[in-house]
Amino acid sequence: MTRARRSMDWGFPRWRPYGSSQEATNVRICDRHGCDEPGNCPAPKAPNSPERWYFCQKHAAEYNSKWDYFEGLDKAEKEERANAERQESSGYTESAHYGWAGSGDGSRSADEMRALEVLGLEADADFNAVKKAYRNRAKEVHPDVKPGDANAAKQFQLIQTSYEVLRAAEERREWRG
């Protein structure tokens, strides 16, 4: 005669976490062909569609990498929408000085990133590198070096504006402490 085993769900303390059971659980597999990872990340199959793909984290990141939030809008609408969202989230940017932010870790604005791109620098460049790049680029296209060249004058103005944006950002960082 065999004895029935006693359940571990009686009394206190509980020997298993609440909500756990001994039944098999269904695990949804990633919808990407050939992937055997659990598909925990839902992604829409089409805009405004209730149907979803279920990807693992790696394939969800791949799926979202080409996502364009402003797709289908013309340039003016994109700018208007981006400005509206920037205004809505301005309260969060005001609190950025509480973080341990440094250059290259997402603490630079989009304008600063464009300015660094104009000067040919990486996102983590310090201000000494900015000064050096500004001087070198300005010497190449300065109106005194290339008189009468409208394209060089335009480039010089762009370089100057980029430097001013980065200088102002550096001063703000120093002021915040």
Score class of each variant (00 low, 15 high):
residue 1 M to C: 07
residue 2 T to G: 12
residue 2 T to C: 06
residue 3 R to V: 06
residue 4 A to Q: 08
residue 9 D to F: 07
residue 12 F to D: 12
residue 12 F to P: 04
residue 13 P to A: 14
residue 14 R to S: 12
residue 15 W to F: 09
residue 17 P to E: 02
residue 17 P to L: 05
residue 19 G to C: 10
residue 19 G to W: 07
residue 19 G to N: 12
residue 20 S to V: 13
residue 21 S to K: 10
residue 24 A to G: 13
residue 26 N to M: 08
residue 31 D to Q: 04
residue 32 R to M: 06
residue 32 R to K: 13
residue 34 G to K: 13
residue 35 C to G: 12
residue 35 C to A: 06
residue 35 C to E: 02
residue 37 E to S: 10
residue 38 P to S: 02
residue 38 P to G: 03
residue 39 G to M: 03
residue 40 N to Y: 06
residue 41 C to D: 13
residue 41 C to Q: 12
residue 42 P to K: 00
residue 43 A to K: 13
residue 44 P to Y: 10
residue 45 K to Q: 14
residue 45 K to D: 06
residue 50 P to R: 15
residue 50 P to L: 07
residue 51 E to F: 03
residue 53 W to A: 01
residue 54 Y to F: 06
residue 55 F to Q: 01
residue 58 K to W: 09
residue 60 A to G: 07
residue 60 A to Y: 15
residue 62 E to W: 08
residue 62 E to L: 15
residue 63 Y to I: 03
residue 63 Y to Q: 05
residue 65 S to Y: 05
residue 68 D to I: 02
residue 69 Y to N: 05
residue 70 F to N: 13
residue 71 E to I: 00
residue 71 E to A: 15
residue 71 E to P: 03
residue 74 D to N: 15
residue 74 D to I: 03
residue 75 K to G: 03
residue 75 K to I: 12
residue 77 E to G: 01
residue 78 K to Y: 03
residue 78 K to L: 02
residue 79 E to L: 10
residue 80 E to R: 15
residue 80 E to P: 00
residue 81 R to L: 07
residue 85 E to L: 11
residue 85 E to K: 05
residue 88 E to S: 04
residue 89 S to Q: 09
residue 90 S to R: 15
residue 90 S to L: 11
residue 91 G to R: 10
residue 93 T to W: 06
residue 93 T to C: 04
residue 96 A to G: 06
residue 97 H to V: 05
residue 98 Y to G: 05
residue 98 Y to L: 15
residue 98 Y to I: 11
residue 99 G to E: 14
residue 101 A to C: 08
residue 101 A to S: 14
residue 102 G to C: 02
residue 102 G to A: 09
residue 103 S to Y: 06
residue 103 S to I: 13
residue 104 G to V: 05
residue 106 G to Q: 00
residue 106 G to P: 01
residue 107 S to Q: 04
residue 108 R to W: 00
residue 109 S to K: 00
residue 110 A to Q: 11
residue 111 D to W: 00
residue 111 D to A: 15
residue 111 D to T: 07
residue 112 E to I: 00
residue 121 L to C: 06
residue 122 E to I: 01
residue 122 E to W: 03
residue 122 E to N: 12
residue 122 E to R: 10
residue 122 E to D: 14
residue 125 A to C: 01
residue 126 D to K: 12
residue 126 D to P: 02
residue 126 D to C: 03
residue 126 D to Q: 08
residue 129 A to I: 04
residue 130 V to A: 06
residue 130 V to N: 09
residue 131 K to I: 07
residue 132 K to A: 09
residue 134 Y to M: 12
residue 138 A to G: 06
residue 140 E to T: 13
residue 140 E to R: 02
residue 141 V to N: 11
residue 142 H to D: 14
residue 145 V to K: 11
residue 146 K to F: 10
residue 147 P to V: 14
residue 151 N to I: 15
residue 153 A to H: 08
residue 153 A to D: 14
residue 153 A to I: 04
residue 153 A to K: 11
residue 154 K to V: 01
residue 154 K to P: 07
residue 156 F to H: 11
residue 156 F to W: 08
residue 157 Q to R: 13
residue 158 L to T: 10
residue 158 L to R: 11
residue 160 Q to P: 02
residue 163 Y to N: 11
residue 163 Y to D: 08
residue 164 E to S: 04
residue 164 E to D: 01
residue 164 E to W: 00
residue 166 L to M: 11
residue 167 R to L: 13
residue 169 A to D: 08
residue 169 A to G: 15
residue 170 E to P: 03
residue 170 E to F: 00
residue 170 E to C: 04
residue 172 R to P: 01
residue 172 R to F: 00
residue 172 R to A: 05
residue 173 R to L: 06
residue 176 R to H: 12
residue 176 R to T: 06
